[in-house]
Design a binder for these strands. Structure first.
Length: 434
RNA sequence: GCAGGGGUUCCCGAGUGGCCAAAGGGAUCAGACUGUAAAUCUGACGCGCAAGCUUCGGUGGUUCGAAUCCACCCCCCUGCACCA
């Protein structure tokens, strides 16, 4: 077997990836040999978003260091809803829907870990397997008995819900921690899994599992949490104007994904390189040093975008994202060939065809319908400020009523394409029908 | 069930009869400046190109006029009671 890399924890620490850990430093020693660890992902949608990337990549880091990772998809916990640090009770999703999401997440999660690695091959499990046939009475007697409500009430993760005026918590969500704790205990029993990792909001759930495993099996297991990803300006990580950044290419195109990382603030980018890439800390520090010497634009963002896009969408996804970015932001729009434009569309640049009778609609309307803006107001504003470009030429508010002349075949690229830019970064490719 | 508090535009949160499409802050979008940054400044921010139209938990009412008053209903929170 391959040896275990004993410097793993040290590296994680240098990356700032260790938020909290149980066991007073015993973990280093524990990880001196090949161990099994797990991290859970609850199906709250049909795809994970980049918030899950840190734990996912950390599983990968453990595997690379010689440990055996288990990705748990929460078919059971997803039916309940984790209350941890949530301000409001969540509405329940139907079992059919959750089942569908579980399947998708299993596949998605599998991209990141290696299933053919001998002793430390990865595993994907579903906690519904050991909960679906469990009777309430068995659950209450075997699991519930080990939990003190007094203790649970004091958890920071539910305090808000317990104390805050205007919100409450149902028994269902309150009991969530029992299910997750059971997972750890069960994985210990089945696979000798001795470490659980998760986001910092999972600390309460993880220690719950550590305690339960000890009480049920007298097993000594460990927990570790990863930091919550924060941005220096205080805004929420992982959101843009167009919403969440998903890992699924059909929800967030590789191009949009790449652009997201490219737009990382200077104040965050080196931290993100540590969190989200497999570049060594030394390499990252070197990049930081070079950027500091340089006047103007740093290199770090493009390295980050390239590395993370490759991890999530592969070489092809990265190539597509870079191709589009280069074409759009180089300013050489007029030089794009029909083939280039066709490629951009295949690469995931938002596009649509102009309906036959588009002349009857206002330009504002056409752009809104294409999804470039949620309503006409911002488009009108942009038109008024000369912030709308069609094939590189400014279009003003006076053209609003004459979409035919704006989208006249004579002005099309390659006879049928119109590349519309709204503001600095939003692009849409229109194609004349027929 | 009883008592008290509350449900306002994406979020927080003002507004208790006309001056309200509704203060203020946040988020977001656009412009200037830049590096497809940050900070700052400017504009927008229910829908509509516009005239205008539709909103303040729901339904009905009072009124020339209601987010604001009344009635009933729904939902949330807190306490008490019931279950014991």
């Amino acid at each position: 077997m391959a040896g275990v890399d004993t410097t793993l924890l040290k590296d994680l620490d240098r990356r700032g990836l260790i938020n909290q850990a149980t066991g007073d430093g015993e973990l280093t020693q524990h990880l001196a040999e090949c161990r099994t660890l797990y991290c859970g992902f609850d199906p709250t949608a049909d795809s994970l978003h980049i918030g899950s990337l840190v734990p996912l990549l950390t599983l990968k880091r453990f595997q690379a260091a010689g440990h055996k990772p288990i990705a748990l998809v929460g078919g059971a916990t997803g039916l309940i809803g984790d209350p941890s640090f949530k301000a409001q009770e969540r509405s329940l999703n139907s079992p059919e829907v959750v089942t569908g999401w579980v399947e998708k997440l299993k596949r998605q999660v599998s991209q990141f870990i290696d299933f053919d690695r001998g002793e430390n091959s990865a595993l994907v499990v579903n906690n519904l397997d050991w909960t679906k046939d469990l009777s309430v009475l068995d659950f209450l007697r075997d699991v519930g008995k080990h939990f003190s409500v007094n203790n649970m009430v004091n958890k920071e993760s539910v305090k808000q819900r317990l104390q805050r005026e205007g919100e409450g918590i149902s028994f269902t969500e309150f009991a969530y921690i029992l299910l997750q704790s059971m997972d750890f205990s069960e994985l210990y029993r089945r696979h000798n899994c001795t470490l659980q990792i998760g986001g910092s909001d999972q600390w309460g759930n993880i220690t719950g599992g550590v305690d339960l495993t000890r009480r049920q099996h007298r097993g000594k297991v460990y927990g570790m949490t990863l930091p919550l990803v924060t941005k220096a300006d205080g805004s929420k990580f992982g959101k843009t104007e167009s919403g969440t950044i998903w890992l699924d290419a059909s929800r967030t195109s590789p191009y949009a994904f790449y652009q997201f990382w490219l737009n990382t603030a200077d104040a965050d980018v080196y931290k993100f390189l540590r969190y989200f890439t497999f570049l060594s800390v030394d390499e990252i520090e070197a990049i930081e040093g070079v950027d500091r010497e340089r006047a103007g634009r740093p290199e770090a963002q493009s390295i980050l975008a390239r590395e993370v896009t490759r991890l999530v969408h592969g070489e092809e996804g990265l190539a597509a994202a870079e191709r589009i970015s280069r074409a759009l932001f180089s300013g050489e729009i007029a030089e794009l060939s029909a083939g280039d434009l066709e490629q951009l569309r295949l690469d995931g640049l938002p596009s649509s065809s102009l309906p036959a009778g588009f002349g009857g609609q206002s330009l504002i309307n056409l752009l809104v319908e294409a999804g470039m803006a949620p309503s006409g107001k911002p488009v009108k504003d942009a038109l008024g400020r000369k912030a709308v470009l069609v094939n590189g030429e400014t279009v003003g508010l006076e053209s609003n009523a004459e979409p035919q002349s704006v989208f006249a075949p004579a002005r099309a690229l390659a006879d049928r394409f119109f590349l519309v830019r709204l503001g600095k970064k939003k692009y849409h490719l229109f194609e004349l029908a027929g």
